[in-house]
Design a binder for these strands. Structure first.
Length: 151
DNA sequence: GCCAACGTTGGC
DNA sequence: GCCAACGTTGGC
């Protein structure tokens, strides 16, 4: 089982939205490094849900990978801002996963706290200038984060 | 509003 | 294939 982190702007899609929907196809990722992480995900993997572009940014909840190997439907939709003219149903370019809501944490775990606690080697998220919207989280760090809430 | 980081585009 | 220009992300 692996741990991941998903960034989302809450104005766009928040942990509350995921709680309401129960499940969501994580569409719109158009970065190859992030896509490769999405391809590596397996059903049952846990994912921290992170709110970006908000004050303060931070981890706000937990989700899990409900299905892997989903085809991102927005790549075929000419009306979508994620439309990719080079993608065809016969050879799609963008795969993703469906995630399911697990829990909203009782309080956000702010980026400033994460930076104080974890080095850039331990947690990619805290690396300056990191723009990946989907990234792996090491098991040790993941368990420490869960421990904060389950102590 | 600023700007660091970095991915993408396009001319050559 | 190189690389400058440009655009986007996202923290501060």
């Amino acid at each position: 089982m692996n741990y991941w982190l998903f960034k989302s702007e809450p104005n766009d899609y928040s942990i509350e939205d995921l709680a309401r929907d129960g499940e969501a196809i994580w569409d719109g990722v158009r970065n190859y490094q992030a896509r490769n992480f999405l391809r590596q995900m397996e059903e049952g993997d846990l994912a921290f849900f992170y709110h970006s572009n908000i004050k303060p940014p931070g981890i706000v909840g937990l989700a899990k990978v409900a299905r892997s190997g989903e085809i991102d439907p927005t790549q075929f939709d000419p009306n979508s801002k994620y439309f990719d003219p080079k993608a065809t149903p016969e050879s799609p370019r963008w795969q993703t996963v469906a995630i399911a809501f697990v829990e909203k944490f009782p309080h956000p775990l702010e980026l400033s706290v994460l930076k104080a606690r974890f080095s850039t080697d331990e947690l990619l998220l805290v690396r300056r200038g990191n723009r990946l919207s989907v990234m792996p989280v090491g098991e040790k760090v993941a368990e420490e984060i869960l421990e904060i809430f389950r102590g």
